[in-house]
Design a protein around this nucleic acid. Sequence first.
DNA 1: AATTGTACCTGTCAGC
DNA 2: TGCTGACAGGTACAAT
Length: 277
Amino acid sequence: MKRLPELPEVETVRRTLRPLLVGRTILGVEVGLPRLVRHPSPEEFARRLAGRRVDRLERRGKYLLFRLAGGETLVAHLRMTGRLTVADPAEPRPRHTHLVFPLDDGRELRYQDLRQFGTFYLLRPGEEGLAKGLAGLGPEPLGRELDEEGFYRRLAGRRGSLKGLLLDQAFLAGLGNIYADEVLFAAGLDPRRAPASLSRAEAGRLFHAIRRVLAQAVRHRGTTVRDYVDGTGTPGGHQHHLQVYGRAGLPCPQCGEPVRRENLAGRGTHFCPRCQG
DNA sequence: AATTGTACCTGTCAGC
DNA sequence: TGCTGACAGGTACAAT
């Protein structure tokens, strides 16, 4: 019940890393935990990465995309406990530092990951399919490709619960356990509801709650419950604004009823049984 | 075919 | 006090 970078956290990492990395050249990479490098082999990964300049830093769902000169893309996913930070090599490396990318300005990009779940790819143009999760992502919730009407139509025929739906990256890219719960509270919808049972008005409420909650969390620079820090090592501020996540048994901020915690779609799910009817 | 369950990991914490 | 085991959750993959 305590961590995880989701869309707002990854977006904050992108924004803080961008001025430190764009225009810099990656001199090489020290791979301390080869398992994290999914494609190509760790040796080829290091060889092809050396000497590449970072042209742009983008985000897709919870993936960070380093667009490199020459057309290749370094793809990073922080999963649960990954941290990407730029630091001076003279600073001692924190525990669980598994990848180190020296830069041409004398600093280095470090990847730290307590639980070793993170994943890295180096892809040529057209190779996006090799990162399966990335290739299968649904629309960006804060982008323009999705509108209220299209969102409503996509609910039809979906089985399972609203909670499961919001966690499905192929349905919508970027929500994780914290924001799924916060969004459903903001929309006043029961996480156990069947997606196809939503009225047009309820779907509209959900659609706008998703965008409102995510945008607010980005403004707060993400949520830090334990592990998350941005590209400069700074924690986020949205944890002070959580309404239900991590508040099981505490009073609902809206009606005072104790927040309930239940296992749903395989995840701890927090909701107010009165406000989320 | 879509959905559900399990593995992957390690630090934390409840309970004895 | 110190140990054990359950738990946390994003995604790949197996199973249903």
